[in-house]
Amino acid sequence: MKLKFWKKEAVKKKSVAREWGDAVMFAVVAATIIRWATFEAYAIPTSSMEKSLLVGDYLFVSKLHYGPRTPSTPLQLPLTHQTIWGTDIASYSDAIRLPSFRFPGFSEVKHNDAVVFHYPAEDNHPTDLKTYYIKRCVGLAGDTLKIREGQVYINGKVAENPRERQFEYFVSTDRVLNNDFFKQRDITEAYGAQGGYVVFTSPAKAKQLAALEFINEVALSKHEPGVAEADVFPQAPTVYKWNRDNYGPLYIPKQGATVAINAKTLPLYKRLILAYEHNENAAVHDGKLFIDGKEVNKYTFKQDYYFMMGDNRHNSLDSRYWGFVPEDHMVGKAVFVWMSVDPEAGLFDKVRWNRLFSVIE
């Protein structure tokens, strides 16, 4: 009997295009997983956290601290957020929505953490694709927060203040102060006004300005207690006469906690119950809360909530204006600045070398 020996077929070599395609696919998948589960880059677009974080800072945000969340909108182009790069075309479809779960992290949210989260008041995108915000967490779930004359109190005790917090001041002077004057004093927000300048700076720098012989006065721009700001949360000035400097007391809901629902508390917690608590049959009619068609006079929360404020206290759109941040909107903790670019500087002074790889306090 003759034995037949079969030759091994030569493995077909991949084309250059195929090899590049495989490499790109692997890189995209790897980057997507890293971005979702570990660290994500984030840029500071506004001055609400000055001087702790500057416009032009590029951060790494840790998902590991609080635990990454599974995406609830799976039909999305990789490495995009809301729109396709350079266009206004949506990069996702919400035809499929999945429940989202958070993996365990190695840390809980703490007072004064610099936190990146999804902007809660935005309703035109799914939760996991809402715009990113960064603020400092001043109030945790279960805390009672109060602000008096700009000072935050938590559970009746003075809260620790950010080292670089700023306020708005009016600098009265007869002189013309140019950009170099403010730049030399590390004041990046200064605007001309009748009789002087409006500046956003720290109390220490305000005191230094007041000591200059050509400065007539440096006055803190503050709101008096009992004078309501109509746009301050919960936007009920007839019930809550709160403003940016005098606010609360306000209870921050904790999972499992029960609050009474009445004409005074409903403005505070209505949006949470209707928008964030996933109650399919909840509604408010004539100032009363109904769930599954029945009026309720108390409510037990299903998740934790947080209260966020910017360190630039008089130039920050934060929880004082739009309310609580739900736990399922929390993204991660800002850990360090990997690059910092001054958008106002000349070509050779663009990079702020002293901020590279600095830890965020």
Rank of each mutant, 00 (worst) to 15 (best):
residue 71 P to C: 06
residue 158 V to E: 15
residue 200 F to K: 14
residue 6 W to I: 02
residue 348 F to I: 10
residue 54 L to W: 10
residue 330 M to N: 01
residue 196 G to D: 02
residue 332 G to F: 00
residue 6 W to L: 15
residue 148 R to V: 15
residue 241 K to S: 13
residue 162 P to K: 06
residue 317 L to K: 14
residue 152 V to E: 12
residue 211 A to F: 03
residue 155 N to S: 02
residue 35 R to L: 04
residue 101 F to D: 09
residue 155 N to T: 03
residue 45 P to R: 01
residue 285 H to N: 14
residue 18 R to I: 05
residue 361 E to Q: 09
residue 7 K to W: 00
residue 174 D to F: 05
residue 334 A to W: 07
residue 298 K to N: 12
residue 175 R to Y: 08
residue 204 A to H: 11
residue 17 A to R: 11
residue 117 F to C: 13
residue 324 F to T: 06
residue 335 V to D: 09
residue 311 D to R: 13
residue 261 I to Q: 13
residue 330 M to G: 09
residue 51 K to P: 02
residue 322 W to V: 04
residue 225 P to R: 00
residue 87 T to G: 06
residue 69 R to T: 11
residue 308 M to N: 02
residue 29 V to S: 11
residue 239 V to L: 15
residue 27 A to H: 12
residue 169 Y to M: 07
residue 32 T to R: 12
residue 98 L to E: 11
residue 137 C to G: 09
residue 153 Y to K: 08
residue 228 A to F: 02
residue 119 Y to R: 09
residue 128 D to W: 05
residue 214 F to L: 04
residue 320 R to T: 06
residue 334 A to T: 12
residue 332 G to W: 05
residue 295 E to G: 12
residue 190 A to T: 07
residue 107 S to G: 11
residue 356 L to M: 13
residue 220 L to H: 14
residue 216 N to G: 13
residue 12 K to T: 10
residue 322 W to Q: 05
residue 351 V to K: 08
residue 13 K to C: 01
residue 331 V to M: 14
residue 24 V to Q: 12
residue 233 F to M: 11
residue 80 T to H: 14
residue 352 R to C: 04
residue 153 Y to T: 06
residue 265 T to M: 13
residue 108 E to H: 15
residue 249 P to I: 03
residue 59 L to W: 08
residue 280 E to Q: 06
residue 35 R to D: 06
residue 312 N to H: 08
residue 108 E to T: 13
residue 243 N to D: 05
residue 87 T to I: 03
residue 201 T to H: 11
residue 114 A to G: 00
residue 67 G to I: 05
residue 46 T to Q: 06
residue 171 V to G: 00
residue 276 Y to G: 00
residue 289 L to G: 07
residue 48 S to Y: 02
residue 52 S to K: 12
residue 360 I to P: 05
residue 201 T to P: 10
residue 268 L to Q: 07
residue 172 S to I: 00
residue 287 G to R: 00
residue 322 W to A: 02
residue 283 A to V: 10
residue 66 Y to Q: 01
residue 84 I to E: 01
residue 296 V to M: 12
residue 112 N to V: 02
residue 58 Y to R: 15
residue 47 S to W: 04
residue 148 R to N: 12
residue 142 G to F: 00
residue 97 R to P: 02
residue 342 D to Q: 00
residue 278 H to K: 15
residue 186 D to Y: 03
residue 74 P to Y: 04
residue 275 A to H: 11
residue 65 H to S: 15
residue 4 K to H: 09
residue 241 K to I: 08
residue 163 R to D: 06
residue 184 Q to N: 13
residue 272 L to I: 14
residue 322 W to N: 01
residue 277 E to P: 04
residue 57 D to P: 03
residue 12 K to A: 14
residue 215 I to M: 02
residue 165 R to C: 11
residue 76 Q to S: 07
residue 222 K to D: 03
residue 305 Y to R: 10
residue 60 F to K: 13
residue 10 A to I: 09
residue 192 G to E: 15
residue 3 L to T: 03
residue 123 D to L: 09
residue 187 I to Y: 07
residue 185 R to I: 00
residue 229 E to P: 00
residue 163 R to K: 14
residue 127 T to M: 07
residue 52 S to F: 05
residue 298 K to A: 14
residue 186 D to I: 04
residue 30 A to N: 10
residue 168 E to V: 04
residue 222 K to A: 15
residue 188 T to L: 06
residue 104 P to Y: 11
residue 236 A to C: 13
residue 157 K to N: 12
residue 6 W to N: 12
residue 234 P to Q: 04
residue 12 K to C: 03
residue 360 I to A: 04
residue 69 R to V: 02
residue 73 T to C: 10
